[in-house]
Design a protein around this nucleic acid. Structure first.
Length: 487
RNA sequence: GGUCGGAUGGCCGAGUGGCUAGGCAGAGGUCUGCAAAACCUCCUACAGCGGUUCGAAUCCGCUUCCGACCUCCA
């Protein structure tokens, strides 16, 4: 099916028809995590959002190369601008371990977390430390083009010079004067010539552990450099989509564009997609504010802001119920609402498996299918898609209740629709069905109870039902027999 | 302080000029040994004040409140 997909491009602040540079191939680069601590739920939202985008593009038949980096070096602590200390190294000194030990620990944690959320792995996951040579080469190109200068073994990007014939604020829509005037004076001894200049290569202090030889000094790359070097290497000078959290847009992505323009006169990506923040009580979730929780805390409910735990798929569903460009506010009430809604959807899907077709159907699924595609084609509008899926759930339940008839053709289409959109596109799965022998055991208990019921021995049947309820299982008697659900 | 964005029913959250999503909660009903589920019906909101328009949650202006970025940040 041909689909016209529209995506919101931050570069032009509007939705645009998605036309890949060289179809059917699509290249996406997403800025990944800095692996110096556990990823919190806000970080997860971004990667779940891009997972949705990756999944949908793949579903549409594109051959997607999805590159998501891991920053394992060169990322500085904030309090001194480029004078700060490497985040990873700071942590390493604290724990008296090798920097790469920290990197390893939190990379594994990140991968585990992504897997729990059913986030598909990217096609390539390059690391900064694995691409030092490429980064040095890029610095050389920018120097050769005259947009950088070296001071005491460090190399800085010359924003003022670049701005003479380039629009530095093309992405963040701010003019140079504003940026210069409103840059906070951070007070540290700064060898940069211009306030907006940023480091491409930083000379390491003697005590610095992570450092590499370069033409300028024994040092390490500036943070913005890795994404330019690695996206160029794996996706080319120009590729289709560059993404990341919206907080990366004003500085990190602005500088990436400057680096690419300075070295090869090309804006690296055609479409810039930015995902919005997860908030708690209206404020951005972040480590520094202390309002972040780790996925594990969310699953167990072990956090002062949480009333109870929620499963990973419930959390994923909760996030997909909001559009990726909107802020999403976390609350227990909202989570509980999502938990119940998600359960309703899953319940309908399991009913769908056993549904019988009629010769004379009264419903046509194809308009519903079209609305599902329309929703996703409108800038990956998953909340609207989910609303349509609830319409599907209503149809499924009505057919089961015998209030609506569906023919074989439409039933097949409905099953295809639910499978493709719920599993493939939204990446939601039924966690309950995953592992065990529980269904067999439950079948036996249900049969025992039904025997009691047919003997009108309600004392026994209620004892079973209420007993199961107390340990977390709800029985439901219907026309087609008894079903059960975990509460 | 500067720049940008937001304010939707009890809660969450879609929606860029008329057709006024969806989920949760609440009310009533149907079904049912009971319970649960499901289905049907109801609850119809767009921060405030002006303006444009035949018509505005949606466009414009002002006001109030909130947030993000400007510094590492998904």
């Amino acid at each position: 099916m041909e689909q016209k997909l529209f995506v919101y491009n931050t570069l032009f602040r509007k939705k645009e028809l998605f036309e890949p540079l060289s179809p059917p191939h699509v290249g996406i680069y997403v800025c990944g995590p800095t692996v110096y601590s556990d990823v919190h739920l806000g970080n997860c939202r971004t990667f779940i959002s891009f997972d949705l985008i990756f999944r949908y593009l793949t579903h549409l038949g594109y051959k997607v190369r999805y590159v998501r980096n891991v920053t394992d070096a060169g990322h500085l602590e904030g309090d001194g601008g480029d004078e700060g200390e490497d985040k990873i190294e700071k942590k390493a000194k604290l724990a008296q371990v090798e920097p790469m030990e920290i990197v390893q620990k939190y990379t594994i944690d990140f991968h585990d977390t992504m897997k729990v959320f059913n986030v598909l792995p990217p096609s390539i996951e390059p690391t900064a430390t694995g691409h030092i040579i490429e980064q040095i080469e890029l610095v050389q190109k920018i120097l050769a083009a005259g947009f950088a200068y070296e001071i005491n073994g460090s190399v800085y990007f010359d924003v003022e010079k670049y701005s003479k014939n380039h629009d530095y604020g093309i992405l963040n829509r701010r003019n140079l004067e504003d940026m210069i005037n409103n840059t906070r004076d951070l007070g540290g001894q700064d060898e940069k010539l211009g306030k907006l200049d940023f480091a491409l290569w930083i000379k390491a202090k003697p005590e610095h552990l992570m450092k590499w030889p370069s033409p300028w000094s024994l040092g390490f790359p500036g943070w913005h450099l890795e994404c330019s070097a690695m996206s160029n290497k794996y996706l080319g000078k120009q590729f289709d989509i560059h993404g990341g959290g919206i907080d990366l847009m004003p500085t990190h992505h602005t500088n990436e564009i400057a680096q690419s323009m300075a070295s090869c006169e090309k804006i690296p990506a055609k479409y810039w997609i930015h995902t919005n923040m997860l908030t708690v009580n209206g404020q951005k979730m972040s480590k520094s504010l202390g309002n972040s929780f780790l996925p594990q805390q969310l699953f167990t409910g072990d956090h002062s802001l949480l009333n109870k735990g929620y499963t990973p798929m419930t959390v994923r569903f909760f996030m997909l119920q909001a559009h990726y460009r909107s802020t999403l506010d976390f609350s227990n009430e909202a989570m509980e609402a999502s938990e119940k809604g998600f359960k309703r959807l899953l319940n309908a899907i399991s009913i769908l498996e056993g549904l019988q077709a009629s010769a004379d159907g009264e419903i046509d699924i194809s308009p519903l299918q079209k609305r599902c595609y329309d929703a996703m084609n409108d800038d990956f509008n998953s909340p609207v898609l989910i609303a349509e899926l609830f319409e599907a759930a209503r149809i499924i339940n009505s057919v089961k209740d015998g209030k609506l008839k569906i023919d074989a053709e439409n039933l097949t289409l409905l099953r295809k629709l639910m499978k493709e959109f719920v599993e493939d596109v939204l990446g939601l799965k039924n966690e309950q069905l995953a592992n065990n022998d529980l269904p067999k055991v439950m079948d036996m208990i249900v049969n025992l109870r039904n025997e009691a019921k047919s003997n009108k021995d309600y004392a026994t049947s209620d004892k079973i039902r209420i007993g199961l309820q107390q340990i977390g299982f709800q029985l439901m008697d219907g026309k087609e027999g008894t079903s059960w659900n975990k509460i």
